[in-house]
Structure formats: structure tokens, C-alpha cells
């Protein structure tokens, strides 16, 4: 195996064979080392956050990854490949150019008792962002999320002054035994902490340029999205093998989990909050 072992022979066969073996071993080892080194670097925020989202996004079911233009019916079937970030999507502007945004007169959409005010932008992970006009933006959990989860047992909000990243962790909540990660809809620096009681969770200020909301849902997209989300919730619950009725008298019940506490709610909430 090695030249210092007495049976080693400097023959062509030996050299080729062992050369190949050592090369293979070296490749395998360096691959692992490389992966370790890279992950050591990447473990630092905020790269980890971005990386985590990339990874999670890949594992989301295709139905979740449906393009917003599919939601709005502009295209029959289209799956997002840009981690829900339309800013990096080359096709998105074309869609915008083709179809002028429908004027939406209504102030809010309402479905099954869930009201979604249209004065704000919605992230697919059930958060909203509302420009306050003073350069700050309020971020909150939408009604769908609130009803689904109910009153959280604990909320861990980022410190004032810390940065949140679009699609990164906005804040975490603890409900029953589940830790829930809520994705931030935009980049920004936290300027004020809210909470479930206040109806919003964070107020952020965007650093540098004005934040863009191109990647967030709005107006006419909300209703089809909400319809799909209700279907998805229904599916997520049914995947637990329990036929749970979502609605009581046409309304999504608040504190839905109370209906059937034995369900894997962590799984349901997680998948609704875009965790794979």
C-alpha cells in the first residue's frame, strides 16, 4: 500500500492501482472537507438565513411554489424557481407589462371569515407588511395565520436594531410544544417590537434604498392565494389522517387546534408557514 511496506513494488500495476485509489480517497476526503469548510463559513448570519431559505424552498411541494401569476390566473401552470423573490425573476416584469394590474376597489378581501385588508402586502408565509409612510414598515401575522395558531404561548422578537432579512426568520413563536419560525417579508432593521396583542409584531426601517414589494402578493392576488391556502390547510390536516372540518358556519375557526389537539400541529403550522 505504501512504499515503506516491504511488499510494495514499484511496478506499473501498483502505481496505477494505488494512484487511482489514493486519488479517489483524496477526492472523497476533500469533498467532505470542502463541504465542512463552506458550511463553517456559511453558518454565520445572514448567509445562513438565505441559505436556509434556499434549502427549504427547494423542498416545498410544487403546489406551494406556484407562481403568483398562476394564482391570478394569468398563466395556467407555472412553478416559481426564484424562492418567491420576484425581484430576481426575469419573467415577472414581462407579466406585469402584459397585464395591467387590476384596479381593486375593495378595501379588503374576505373569505371564510378571514379578512385580509388590501392596504398592505402579503408574504406567502402569512405575514404582511404595511408601509407606514414614515420610512418604517409594520410587519404582522395575517389573520389566516392568527386563526390557525391562535394566541401564541411565547413570542421571541428580534432586538431593536437587529436586521431581518426577507425570507429569513422574522420572529419565532412558541405554541404548545412547537417552535414556529415566521418568515420576514422584507429586509430591514427593527425599530420597534410589537406583539400578538398589538396586532403587529415588528416595525422595521429599511436601510438604504426604498424597499421593493415586487415579491409580495397584493390586491387581486390575495383571494386566489387564500383559496389555495385554505385547500392546502385542509390537505395538511387531512394528511394527518383526521377529517377535520375547517369551517364552522362558513368561518375558519379561531384556535383551530382546539378542535383536535392530537393532530401534529407543528407539522401543519410549519408547512403553512413555508417550512419544508
Amino acid at each position: 500500500m505504501f512504499p515503506w511496506i516491504y511488499e510494495f513494488r514499484w511496478t506499473v500495476g501498483h502505481i496505477i492501482f494505488l494512484g487511482v485509489f489514493f486519488t479517489v480517497a483524496a477526492v472523497v476526503v476533500s469533498t467532505v472537507v470542502l463541504a465542512l469548510r463552506r458550511s463553517k463559513k456559511a453558518i454565520a448570519d445572514p448567509r445562513r438565513e438565505a441559505l436556509q431559505w434556499t434549502s427549504e424552498f427547494e423542498d416545498l411541494p410544487a403546489v406551494v411554489r406556484a407562481c403568483r401569476h398562476q394564482l391570478s390566473g394569468e398563466v395556467k401552470e407555472r412553478t416559481c424557481h426564484h424562492e418567491f423573490d420576484c425581484r430576481s425573476c426575469a419573467t415577472h416584469p414581462q407579466f406585469l407589462a402584459r397585464t395591467a394590474p387590476a384596479i381593486h376597489a375593495a378595501a379588503e378581501e374576505s373569505l371564510c371569515g378571514i379578512s385580509m385588508p388590501l392596504d398592505r402586502y402579503y408574504h406567502r408565509g402569512h405575514t404582511w407588511v404595511k408601509p407606514e409612510g414614515d420610512g418604517t414598515f409594520t410587519i404582522g401575522l395575517d389573520e389566516f395565520g392568527s386563526r390557525m395558531i391562535g394566541q401564541p404561548d411565547a413570542v421571541a422578537l428580534p432586538e431593536v436594531g437587529s436586521a431581518v432579512l426577507a425570507n429569513g426568520t422574522g420572529w419565532t413563536m412558541r405554541k404548545r410544544s412547537s417552535d414556529l419560525r415566521v418568515l420576514a417579508p422584507i429586509d430591514g432593521v427593527v425599530v420597534e417590537q410589537g406583539g400578538p396583542d398589538k396586532g403587529w409584531y415588528l416595525r422595521v426601517r429599511s436601510e438604504g434604498t426604498e424597499p421593493q414589494f415586487r415579491h409580495l402578493l397584493r390586491g387581486h392576488e390575495i383571494r386566489p392565494w387564500l383559496v389555495r391556502e385554505l385547500e392546502r390547510l385542509e390537505y395538511a390536516l387531512s394528511s394527518d389522517g383526521i377529517g377535520l372540518s375547517l369551517a364552522d358556519g362558513g368561518e375558519l375557526m379561531p384556535d383551530l387546534w382546539k378542535q383536535s389537539p392530537e393532530i401534529d400541529w407543528e407539522g401543519v403550522w410549519g408547512s403553512m408557514l413555508l417550512q419544508a
Binding site: V24, V27, V28, T31, V32, L34, A35, L36, R38, S39, A42, I43, R48, L51, Q52, T54, S55, D59, D179, G267, G270, A276
Partner: peptide, 28 residues
């Protein structure tokens, strides 16, 4: 990528990096 293990950021990141190099391993 197990649901619990991936909650540990280290694992998730390592998995991600390893996965990126997977073509090399597949080649080997």
C-alpha cells in the same frame, strides 16, 4: 433533511453545502 435534524442550523447548512458538491461524489 429530517424534519427535526434540519432545525439545527449547522446540519442544515452542512447538508446544503454537501448537496452542492454531490455531483463530484456521484462522479466518484
Amino acid at each position: 433533511k429530517n424534519r427535526k435534524l434540519r432545525q439545527i442550523p449547522r446540519f442544515l447548512v452542512f447538508e446544503f453545502q454537501l448537496h452542492k458538491i454531490m455531483p463530484v461524489l456521484a462522479g466518484v
